[in-house]
């Protein structure tokens, strides 16, 4: 072929740009989550002066969304953007690095990861797979979800059919709910027709985009099950090690910048979206009743204790998480919470 002279491996020189593929668990250009890898890629391309270029592939374009970790670990791509809770089947402790019901919020989570020993534990967890994790953005406190019926007491959760994956789903089952798994395409129609009674999604920005207000009238806060869901960038270790030191720094700094950028975007857009939902679509925004919250909290305690007993890695990481959480919570009671109440 005519192009072989220019692109063949034999002619590769040091000046040739390094090309990385980044696969994600979201459709390309997905609001919020899907912007983070794009932001990252733009930063890297600009900072490296084009010496390292990152091409972003949406879910399914190269590999399906839930295959991101394997693709990075096997080295078929250099990077991925996803959420740690998807790798629960490989590492029962992984969900701690995305969200725990009634766990830390975004500020606390970032602090634990970068100043509380969390990142070291995370790297240690992924090391056997040849994968290096970086914080990859955070949605902030999510919403509890969309409900077709009003929830006035704990009894209303009895037999309630809700799409709620992950640890949240397990806790939900503990209090009498029926967690249902559905594909993305089926969620809206199933909620509309009443095949399910409720679903959680992300927060106002993504939920407005998904049009869930057309299928359910009640929008409950707050996201007890995902109080600040952390996303992740994952990098194949061999690929990372093969980069010159300056490009390694650029990758690391770009993840850090994209991490913050995602939260900024969510903070700005969630508020706008919530206003639209209330004012334009007449959505009833309500808080889950206190007895529901208490029951969920108790069930969370039970589920987490069971998880820690079943898996030593979970126990070790959760101990670090909890120790940090207990400390930071005490201070935030005095600072953030008092301030929220007073302002």
């Amino acid at each position: 072929a005519p192009s072989s002279a220019t692109t063949g491996p034999a002619t590769k020189t040091a000046a040739e740009p390094i090309k990385w593929k980044l696969v994600t668990s979201w459709p390309k250009n997905f609001p919020g989550l899907g912007q983070t890898p794009e932001t990252f890629a733009n930063y890297v391309n600009a900072m490296s002066g084009g010496r390292l270029t990152v091409t972003v592939y949406g879910a399914g374009e190269l590999v399906p969304g839930f295959e991101v970790f394997d693709a990075v670990s096997q080295g078929s791509v250099q990077m991925g953007h996803s959420g740690a809770y998807y790798w629960k089947g490989k590492m029962p402790a992984a969900p701690i690095f995305s969200a725990i019901p009634f766990g830390m919020n975004v500020t606390e989570m970032n602090a634990w990861l970068h100043y509380g020993g969390g990142m070291e534990l995370w790297r240690e967890l992924y090391a056997p797979f040849g994968v290096i994790p970086f914080a990859g953005g955070n949605t902030g406190v999510q919403m509890a979800g969309w409900f077709k019926k009003e929830i006035t007491a704990l009894e209303d959760f009895d037999g309630l059919k809700m799409r709620i994956p992950g640890l949240g789903g397990e806790v939900f089952k503990e209090v009498g709910g029926v967690p249902v798994t559905l594909t993305g395409g089926e969620i809206f129609t199933s909620l509309q027709t009443g095949a399910i009674d409720a679903t959680e999604w992300v927060g106002p920005y993504n939920d407005l985009a998904f049009g869930l207000f057309r299928a359910a009238d009640f929008y409950y806060h707050s996201g007890w099950h995902e109080p600040g869901t952390a996303l992740e960038f994952i990098v194949n270790k061999e690929a990372f090690d093969s980069l010159p030191a300056d490009l390694q720094s650029i990758v690391e700094v770009a993840t850090r910048a994209a991490n913050q950028d995602t939260l900024d975007e969510y903070t700005a857009r969630n508020n706008q979206a919530m206003q639209t939902l209330i004012k334009e679509h007449g959505v009833a925004v309500k808080a889950l009743p206190e007895d529901v919250m208490l029951a969920l909290k108790a069930a969370t305690e039970k589920v987490l204790t069971e998880k820690a007993a079943a898996d030593p890695q979970f126990a070790k990481i959760y101990a670090s998480y909890k120790a940090f959480y207990d400390g930071v919570r005490e201070y935030h009671e005095l600072s953030e919470k008092t301030y929220y109440d007073n302002r």
Binding site: A1, S3, S4, T7, G8, P9, K21, G60, L62, V63, P64, F66, E67, D70, A71, Q74, G75, S76, V77, T181, L182, T183, G185, E186
Partner: peptide, 24 residues
């Protein structure tokens, strides 16, 4: 000929697993 990145084929098992787990 230098115009195709064989790394694409490494995505094969992941794509097949996607077929196996397709819920629709």
């Amino acid at each position: 000929a230098g115009g195709f990145d064989l790394a694409y084929l490494a995505a094969l098992p992941s794509r097949l697993n996607g077929v196996l787990t397709n819920q629709t």
